[in-house]
Amino acid sequence: MTEAASDVAVRGARRWLTPLLWGGLLLGACLGMQHLEGLFRLVETDSRSVIYARADFLTLLGRHLLVVGVAALAAVVIGVGAAVAVTRRAGRDFLPLVAQLASIGQTFPPVAVLALAVPVLGFGTLPIIVALLLYGLLPIVRNTLAGLQGIDPGVREAARGMGMTSGQLLRQVELPLAAPVILAGIRTSVTINIATAAIGATVGASNLGDPIISGIVNGNTAYVLQGALLIGLLALTVDSVFARLQPAASTG
């Protein structure tokens, strides 16, 4: 490797240092939880088992990520799509409606959504994905609207006046300019949902919420702490990844 190339590699690694650090801690905690047994004994002296063992943590982490990821992906597609649609000329009439619906989505507690969704969708991962999707929609819709509306009207006027089609205007000008704000919305949405996803364990969607729910039910504080620790580390990891993505997007 040449000196310049290694220099770039080093700088790249340093940029990703924080996410790598949190990610490493997260993986380490998943794989080596039993080594902390002594520590958890201190909080939970009279239980026979202090390390949650009904499923292994790595599997729970994977399922947790899957649920949050699918919900986030759907929320981004629906949220950005809706916000873009109501800022077009044809959809402008629906702007207040969409803004309001997104707000309602967030005021509606996810637990209530779960309660309503289970009879319709059954137990498992589907109701929690729906609940997370609704809950995570608002920050994405709100930020996409803010990002698009914050673009200097002169830029849009010039783009149209130069002969850009509306598709070119959206892809080459509006979305790139709004990207940092949209990304901030996705970041908020995902980070909140990583924590919220834990309630999925109450309707049979097994994820990092399992140890917490099981701990509450069995009166085992150690379980609760283990679930909380892993969810916290996951949120920090994902958040630091977004933090790294953001400045890159703004210069795009």
Binding site: D152, P153, G154, V155, R156, E157, A158, A159, R160, G161, M162, G163, M164, T165, V173, P176, L177, T251, G252
Partner: peptide, 21 residues
Amino acid sequence: REESLRRRMGYAIQSTGLFPH
């Protein structure tokens, strides 16, 4: 077509409308 008409004409405005990115 609107777009081809506009591409045949230069357009300059007060706020410049330069693309900041």
